[in-house]
């Protein structure tokens, strides 16, 4: 047993613990429904697929957020990038809707990346500023109300339709995940992200163009946020003010719970997927238990801290 634990790589440990916790959540929820209703709705494929569909939006945001966090940066512009992409996509409409939304994500990512990489402004404040500019643009564009335009058929198909009983959104999430996981583990750009996140000066001295790596990561994050916004607009059939606000903090939490180090340089992509599933299931089980908002927030915070206390502890600073 001890040798088994010793053989687990340090990067895999968080993923195992988080997966174990997902089982605990499912069992606790099932225990609750067995005791109150006498049925086990949580373990039916239908329920789990619905959860994964809800998780797809968060999963795509978190995938982009992870590339930025791996650099030791953070992208706080996610909420209004999502909203802006969704609003512009539904305003333009037609076949150009989705490309327009993605173009917005690309532009926001470029601006973020250039500000952080070239002006060396801390990402925390620069992306925050970009977020409020996007919010300002959208308020000016819509007049502060929810726009009347509805999502296009393709957006609705991607977000809410099903293929062979499996929601299409899950396929989209899977596709985004595979692309990002491949970028991170198989390409020179992915390796440069890890290197730059570990120590930017060393990466620079070994010939990595770290500024372009940073710009690239922010562009990925912008594109992911935009895709999630477009999907969310398709799911609810329209874009509305503040639709992205509920995704920023859970995305950061999912990335960190999945074992990615918040200061950058360490973390596996599969961990982020596990983190997203954990957060979505936790929310869903708490709402099945009819937990009031107060209790939910407290449990949510406590779970994050507890999980991190198990495996997120950093070394003591001694030199």
């Amino acid at each position: 047993m001890a040798s088994l634990i010793a053989r687990i790589k340090p990067d895999d440990f968080p993923i195992l613990v988080a997966s174990g916790f997902i089982l605990v959540i499912l069992l606790a929820g099932t225990g609750y429904t067995l005791a109150t209703l006498g049925t086990m709705p949580l373990l039916t494929p239908n329920y789990l697929l619905t959860q994964l569909q809800t998780g797809a939006f968060l999963g795509i945001v978190a995938a982009g957020m992870m590339t930025v966090i791996l650099l030791g940066h953070i992208d706080l512009s996610v909420p209004w990038t999502m909203t802006a992409a969704a609003m512009m996509a539904s305003t333009i409409g037609g076949p150009a809707a989705i490309p327009t939304g993605l173009a917005i994500g690309l532009c926001v990512g470029l601006v973020n990346g250039l500000g952080v990489a070239y002006l060396r402004i801390p990402s925390m404040i620069f992306t925050l500023g970009v977020d409020s500019v996007m919010r300002g643009l959208m308020v000016a564009h819509t007049g502060g109300f929810a726009p009347q335009d509805t999502a296009t058929d393709l957006m609705r198909y991607l977000a809410a339709d099903k293929i062979l009983g499996i929601p299409v959104a899950i396929f989209v999430w899977a596709a985004v995940s595979i692309v990002i996981a491949a970028i991170l583990s198989r390409t020179a750009f992915g390796k440069s992200i890890y290197a730059t996140g570990n120590r930017e000066a060393a990466a620079y001295l070994s010939g990595i163009r770290t500024r372009w790596v940073i710009v690239g990561a922010f562009v990925i994050s912008g594109l992911c946020a935009a895709s999630a916004g477009i999907l969310l607009a398709g799911y609810s059939n329209k874009a509305y003010q503040g639709m992205g606000n509920a995704y920023l903090l859970p995305a950061i939490a999912a990335v960190v719970i999945g074992g990615t180090h918040i200061l950058g340089g360490r973390g596996r992509f599969i961990g982020t997927v596990v983190g997203v599933i954990l957060i979505v299931l936790l929310n869903s089980v708490l709402s099945i238990m009819q937990m009031p908002e107060a209790g939910r927030q407290i449990i949510y915070g406590t779970v994050i801290i507890t999980m991190l206390l198990v495996y997120g502890r950093t070394a003591r600073v001694t030199s």
């Binding site: 949510y300 915070g301 406590t302 994050i304 801290i305 206390l309």
Partner: peptide, 11 residues
């Protein structure tokens, strides 16, 4: 707990 402040205070 030796955790990063940003994520602790988030929680």
């Amino acid at each position: 707990g030796r955790l990063q402040p940003i994520i602790v205070t988030l929680a």
